[in-house]
Amino acid sequence: MNVSEHIGKPIKALNGLELHYVGDIAIIVMDCGENRLNLTFVKGFNELMDDIESNSSCKGLITTGKGKFYSNGLDLKWLATQTAEDVKEFIVALQKWLLRLLLFPLPTVAALNGHTFAGGALVAFAHDLRVQNREKGWLCFNEVWINRQFSHFHLLYLRTKLGRAYCDALVLGKRYTAREALNDGLVSATPSSALLLSESIHLLKSLYGNSGYPRESLHLMKADVYRDAVAEQQSEIQKAEITSVTENPFVSKL
């Protein structure tokens, strides 16, 4: 998918992330190779989300990637080079960012242009809806294959999002094609690569009509629906912030 052919030049570019607008819909395009998650990525994404929230005319958010990947999860090579305190800072920042996505006061769609693995899948399911390119890319929580575990916060919101696919997706680490993901209710549509953004825009517009959702009401509704996950995340963050760490857990596992 050549994103630039569909939406032109970004109004803001930051650390491999681009902010575009198509009418009243914001689109964040990730252009960082495999779009792996590190502190620079999370901080840049948060800054663009700040800009979107400050735009009172914006009615929805779409995120997508360029090329082969939507996101390939945590930046393990980067994590292996960090101090234990730096890793702790990143994990706290990541959890807060995922919660922000989960409760964002606009309807959100993850347009999965390509492979969406592990932490990348966590990001996709922090959105309200997902649309998956039917021509290429797997959707997969592959943590069981790489000896990683989910936090309780992740498990709680994923249980709501995944429904009947919860055990297959997490315990078995199933790789979903677009057709399989649609059949199991993980995505809302499976357009071609060329139509991925236009279908995502159409999906958003079909939800909010002419006026858009009242932001405060939408945020509060999300907080109510994901109440258990929110409480667990806050508890985990509090524990992480007061816990002293001396070793980087990502060094020996690579």
Rank of each mutant, 00 (worst) to 15 (best):
Met1Ala: 14
His6Trp: 08
Ala13Cys: 06
Leu17His: 01
Leu17Met: 07
Leu19Ser: 09
Tyr21Glu: 09
Tyr21Ser: 03
Ala26Thr: 08
Ile28Met: 11
Ile28Trp: 06
Val29Leu: 03
Met30Val: 02
Glu34Ser: 12
Arg36Met: 12
Leu37Trp: 08
Phe41Leu: 03
Val42Phe: 11
Val42Asp: 14
Asn46Gly: 13
Glu47His: 13
Glu47Phe: 15
Leu48Glu: 00
Ile52Thr: 01
Asn55Met: 05
Asn55Gly: 05
Ser56Ala: 02
Ser56Leu: 07
Cys58His: 03
Thr64Pro: 00
Gly65His: 09
Gly67Pro: 06
Phe69Val: 00
Tyr70Cys: 07
Asn72Val: 03
Leu74Gln: 11
Leu76Met: 13
Lys77Trp: 12
Leu79Lys: 05
Gln82Gly: 12
Ala84Thr: 09
Lys88Ala: 01
Glu89Trp: 08
Glu89Ala: 14
Val92Gln: 03
Trp97Asn: 13
Arg100Lys: 14
Leu101Val: 12
Val109Gly: 06
Gly119Lys: 12
Ala124Met: 03
Asp128Phe: 05
Arg130Trp: 06
Gln132Ile: 00
Leu139Pro: 03
Cys140Gln: 15
Cys140Pro: 01
Phe141Ser: 06
Ile146Asn: 08
Asn147Cys: 09
Gln149Lys: 15
Ser151His: 05
Phe153Gly: 01
Leu156Ala: 04
Leu158Asn: 06
Thr160Ile: 09
Lys161Gln: 12
Leu162Gln: 02
Leu162Phe: 15
Leu162Trp: 07
Gly163Trp: 08
Ala169Met: 05
Arg175Gln: 12
Arg175His: 12
Arg179Phe: 14
Leu186Pro: 09
Pro191Lys: 00
Ser192Gly: 04
Ser192Glu: 07
Ser192Gln: 07
Ser193Leu: 02
Ala194His: 00
Leu203Lys: 09
Leu204Cys: 00
Leu204Asp: 00
Lys205His: 04
Tyr208Asn: 04
Gly209Val: 06
Asn210Phe: 10
Arg215Leu: 08
Leu220Cys: 11
Asp224Phe: 15
Val225Phe: 15
Arg227Met: 11
Ala229Tyr: 04
Ala231Asp: 13
Ile237Thr: 10
Glu241Trp: 10
Thr243Met: 11
Val245Gln: 02
Asn248Gln: 05
Pro249Phe: 01
